[in-house]
């Protein structure tokens, strides 16, 4: 699985959404499944998937599908 697939899988498992969901449009607090409870699970899924530690700044900055990719890139995750 490449990193973008790993990233999507974290959303599918963390937010409990379908594999054909519109990932690019997802927003914290807007997408029904992505509220603070979902966010906690999603963070844990991402930490496992990419073997990284997400600190408070990353957790509170991360609020869209794209912003998560940007934040992970900064932590050295290669999205190609």
């Amino acid at each position: 699985m490449n990193n973008i697939e790993l990233y999507k899988t974290a959303f599918i498992n963390g937010l409990d959404v379908e594999p054909d969901a519109s990932f690019e449009e997802m927003k914290l607090g807007v997408t029904k499944e992505w509220d603070s409870i979902g966010h906690m699970t999603l963070i844990a899924e991402l930490e496992d998937a990419f073997d990284v530690d997400l600190d408070s700044d990353v957790i509170t900055d991360f609020n869209t599908y794209q912003s998560g990719i940007d934040l992970l890139k900064r932590l050295g995750v290669d999205f190609g």
């Binding site: 914290l28 607090g29 509220d35 603070s36 966010h39 906690m40 957790i59 509170t60 900055d61 609020n63």
Partner: peptide, 11 residues
Amino acid sequence: TEASVMQKEFW
């Protein structure tokens, strides 16, 4: 605010 503790805006 509608922001939760998980959002930067809240803090």
